[in-house]
Design a protein around this nucleic acid. Sequence first.
DNA 1: TCGCCTTTT
DNA 2: GAGGGAAAAGGCGAA
Length: 474
Amino acid sequence: MLKPIWDSKTSKDFSANFDCYIAEALLSDGHSIGTQEETFKKYKVDNLLELARVQEQLLDKNSQLKKLFNKIEMPLAKVLFKMEQRGILLNTKQLKQVGKEIEGMILDLEEEINKQTGGGLNINSPIQLGHFLVEKVGVPLGKTKTGKYATNESELSLYNDQFAIISHILSYRELTKLRSTYVESLITKTDQNDRVHTTYNQVYVNTGRLASSNPNLQNIPVSSPIGLEIKSCFVASEGMNLVSFDYSQQELRVLAHLADEKELIKAFKNNQDVHTLTASKLFNISYEQVSKQQRAVGKTINFGIIYGMSSYGMSTGLHISEADAAQFIKNFYISYPSIKTYYDEYLKNAKLNGVVETLLGRRRYVFEFPGQKFISNNMRRVLMNYPVQGSAADLMKKAMVDVQEKILDIYPDVFLLLQIHDDLVFEIPEKDNHRMKKVINEIKDVLCCVYPLAVPLVVEVKTGKRWGELSSFK
DNA sequence: TCGCCTTTT
DNA sequence: GAGGGAAAAGGCGAA
């Protein structure tokens, strides 16, 4: 039997999901024209119907996968089509105003920076910038993996206090990013009615998430004030409200369910803050005693575990020693023993079977190279993240299909506009306030009941006219 | 086209 | 012994 291939360079259009098994079936069917990948690609172009037949046969062998395909992915395609068609209204006039505001700030910063560089330096060039900072200013920057001076945000921040120019550069970076990606680019993508229509790719992401492009509406800024001003340029249509539904701590809830971790499940049932809970366990103090800083550590560890983080990765992230970081990770697993057991068992089976699955049966193949016997650190992290991110994506996809059937098909004047991984944004008419509240509560129910888990799913609802300024609903 | 950087969940 | 936190899109400079 042929092994599925893994090649990071080509994984995006090959080997991600079903593809290696399809190729394998083609080859064993006598259709080989070379490698697995060559055979697959040729059939993808030349013989779609034949490919569909082979694919159908493969789906027939796995009832859960077949159900995922027929009951979720196929209906979802229609939902995504409607979302893309509808688009979201952009207040272009205001966005241009924000653009001018940003432009002014950039000019001021340029002037300030040029004063110190004497001009002639392209701040946008990491190579020129790194050279200048190290050679002329004396900032002891580290190196990138290709031997250049690193000028990324976390590196520069280390010296923010010692060199005045650094904070100017960081602000300049932030603002030029916002200008090019979120102001200038966005305005060119509006239609005659000032609506922007993203494209959702349903099959691109290895974990099963959606990808949004041209424009990407899944990374609209939220963290800085000026970023929020940009987000606020996305507005509701006339007579409508924007309503966002955000799954709270979705991935940690999924992990609690998958690992059947009783402590975590109990915390979610009692509506406790899990970052605080983790901190209280790591520092061996009571829930009430946890400080803000300690909660931040708890949060970093919680996310780090989901991402398969090493002690080194955490030590740089938290600015602590590697030994301390290792101790935190150890304490985490002592505090939540079922999570340790779950991951041990899961990785063992991944190695054994060469494939892993999400809650709803989405599959990912494990082999990095044909015949490889061990799992690299990188693959270990990828695998650890997969069931959590992938299952969360499954649930959201199912929720969207349910919403279509139970809400959008019933209320033709309610529209689903956007999906941002754990967040759905709707347009709902505001005229009949009672009806709007009814619709909101019905949507909330659909999302919370999407799939029975060992933990409750909590959804936070926000409403308003401008996406960047939504306020809590009730 | 590749590497670096920044933005999100 | 090196590299050492998941998944993305996209702008820009350098080659």
